[in-house]
């Protein structure tokens, strides 16, 4: 249970529902599909502001289209998370 209020996909309406739908339609590796079927927690964390959600993950999506390989990006993101002592 997150410390900040979040709205799951099943309860989303209006702009949030449309934003969740657009996020789910993006090509995402299986490793990033959580088994619970809802949107990943890091996306739900932005659910109180659908525009913020769309803008934030628009930037991360643009990074995926950079010249680095998926493996390199995973290495860099993993080291960054570990350095910040974060599970994400």
């Amino acid at each position: 249970m997150a410390w900040l209020t979040t709205i799951p996909r099943s309860e989303a309406t209006g702009e949030l529902a449309r934003t969740y739908e657009a996020m789910a339609a993006r090509p995402i590796p299986d490793a990033y599909q959580p088994p619970h079927g809802d949107a990943p927690g890091i996306i739900r964390a932005h659910s109180l502001d659908p525009e913020l959600m769309r803008l934030t993950f628009g930037v991360s999506g643009a990074l995926h289209r950079s010249t680095l390989s998926w493996a390199d990006r995973e290495l860099i993101s993993s080291v960054t998370s570990r350095t910040n002592q974060c599970f994400y």
Binding site: W3, P35, H36, A45, S81, F87, Y88
Partner: peptide, 15 residues
């Protein structure tokens, strides 16, 4: 992203 995760207390939800 790590700061959002740490401040919001989301669970780790990837297998």
């Amino acid at each position: 992203l790590t700061r959002v995760a740490d401040a919001t207390g989301i669970d780790f939800d990837y297998a």
